[in-house]
């Protein structure tokens, strides 16, 4: 990862695009911009940014669809920029694979903090490997294999799995996970955790609808179990 993170901002409104570019550049990011989803996907292939800030309301293909298309091939972090904090938007956005979301009118500082938090998730930590059944987590290489096959996890999914695997058998509340993985303040949206757990289960569990590794602890949160 380069020392100056490069971002791709996909936003159709000129004023917002210009203002956010200005603000993010001042925060020390390298920012490329696109006005439509199609342009954004093209720029993504050409420039390989570290992170994407994606507006939901786009002409042509909308933000959710862009998000889904990116996720088919790429695991890079995506932050949604939604004009509506209406719940259906947030839920759909998280299901289509976004790592985090920010509601307009967004403050540059908040967006910057979210970007930095997401980027930190990809950072390596010196540690050994741990295995849970057929799942092997290599903390040094930051890779996860299942039955010897490499799993494609986004940095957020990987961080969530790491935080859970660090305390095997111990339930972590959604608020705890929000602080550990997303670095949100006390008002984190617990649906971020739920959506991410959902995606992670789809990748690591044998049968995602009846999980044996990442289990729900009702009234508390989630815990990682070693299957017996």
């Amino acid at each position: 990862m380069s020392s100056v993170p490069s971002l791709l901002l996909i936003e159709d409104d000129d004023a917002i695009r210009t203002a956010l570019e200005l603000s993010l550049t001042r925060q020390g990011h390298r920012v490329a911009t696109a006005a439509t989803g199609e342009d954004g996907l093209k720029l993504l292939r050409e420039q390989r940014p570290d992170l994407i800030v994606l507006d939901v309301m786009l002409p042509g293909i909308d933000g959710f669809e862009v998000c889904r298309r990116i996720r088919r091939t790429d695991q890079l972090p995506i932050i949604l920029l939604t004009a509506r904090s209406d719940d259906i938007d947030v839920v759909v956005g998280l299901e289509s694979g976004a790592d985090d979301y920010v509601v307009k009118p967004v403050q540059g500082r908040v967006l910057d903090a979210r970007i930095r938090a997401v980027l930190r998730r990809g950072e390596r930590e010196a540690n050994d490997a741990a295995s849970f059944g057929s799942l092997v987590i290599d903390r040094a290489a930051m890779t996860v294999t299942k039955n010897g096959e490499d799993l494609q996890l986004t940095p957020t999914e990987l961080r969530l799995l790491l935080e859970l695997s660090r305390r095997p058998g111990q339930a972590l509340s959604r608020q705890q996970l929000l602080r550990l993985v997303w670095e949100h303040d006390y008002l984190g949206d617990s649906r971020l955790v739920d959506a991410c757990v959902q995606r992670l289960r789809a990748k690591v569990e044998d049968v995602p609808s009846s999980p044996t590794l990442i289990r729900t602890v009702r009234g508390v949160g989630y815990r990682l179990d070693t299957p017996s």
């Binding site: 917002i16 203002a19 956010l20 200005l22 603000s23 001042r26 009118p105 967004v106 403050q107």
Partner: peptide, 20 residues
């Protein structure tokens, strides 16, 4: 109020730059 958000987003981002 929804329509007000779009210009406000741009203004907010810029005023932060001014504030800094």
């Amino acid at each position: 109020s929804h329509e007000l958000r779009t210009p406000l987003t741009a203004i907010t981002a810029v005023t932060e730059v001014l504030e800094e």
